[in-house]
Simulated assay, not measured.
Amino acid sequence: MSDLSKLKNVGKAALADFAVLGIASTAQLAACEPDDLYVKLCALTGQRHDPCVHDVFAATIHQARTGEALNWWTFTPARKERMKAGTFCKV
């Protein structure tokens, strides 16, 4: 079992997304940015994913970097503000 599966917001879907992205460890995840992962996932799968996937990426990266396990929806308001401002990832 991957150490990624021990992160708070990681279930089967997130593990599958990480596999598509080539991310196999928490250390590797810690070096990533949520925007980059979201855009890359959409490109690799040929589809726009629910923006909540970005929030999961943000939460898991935060935990990988800091050890603090926050719920993914903690990151939703900031993403929604960026969407409103037009500064969220262009997919």
Rank of each mutant, 00 (worst) to 15 (best):
L41D: 01
A13N: 13
A24T: 13
K12V: 13
D17W: 04
K8N: 08
H54L: 11
A14T: 12
S25N: 05
A24S: 12
G22C: 08
A59S: 10
D35M: 06
C42P: 09
S2D: 14
A14I: 08
K12S: 09
R48H: 02
T66Y: 09
D50E: 12
A58L: 12
S2H: 07
Y38P: 06
A24D: 13
D35I: 09
A64I: 05
K84V: 05
R79Q: 08
H49W: 15
T66A: 09
R48T: 14
K40P: 02
T26F: 00
E33P: 01
A19L: 11
A14C: 11
I23M: 02
C42M: 05
A19I: 02
Q63L: 11
S5P: 01
P51D: 05
N71S: 13
K80M: 08
R79G: 01
H54V: 05
R65M: 03
V20E: 11
C52W: 08
L21M: 10
K6C: 09
C89V: 15
D36T: 13
Q28D: 13
I23Q: 03
K6D: 14
L4K: 02
S2R: 12
R82C: 04
S2K: 12
T45S: 15
F88P: 03
E81A: 14
L44H: 10
C32F: 01
G11W: 14
A30D: 01
S25I: 07
H54E: 03
A19E: 12
E81W: 05
G11V: 06
L37M: 12
A58N: 03
A58W: 06
F88Q: 07
L21V: 09
C42V: 11
H54R: 11
W73S: 10
T87Q: 10
L41G: 03
L7K: 03
L21R: 07
S2P: 08
E68M: 11
C52N: 13
R65T: 05
T87K: 09
V91R: 08
F18K: 01
L15D: 10
V39I: 14
E68H: 06
C89L: 05
A19R: 15
V56A: 06
G11T: 10
H62D: 07
C52S: 15
S2Q: 09
L37K: 03
L15E: 14
A59W: 02
L15G: 04
A78L: 06
I61S: 02
A19G: 03
E81H: 05
D17Q: 10
K8I: 04
I23S: 02
T26M: 07
K40V: 00
S2I: 02
I61K: 04
A14Y: 00
D3A: 04
Q28S: 09
H62P: 02
K12W: 05
H62E: 10
E33D: 13
A31L: 12
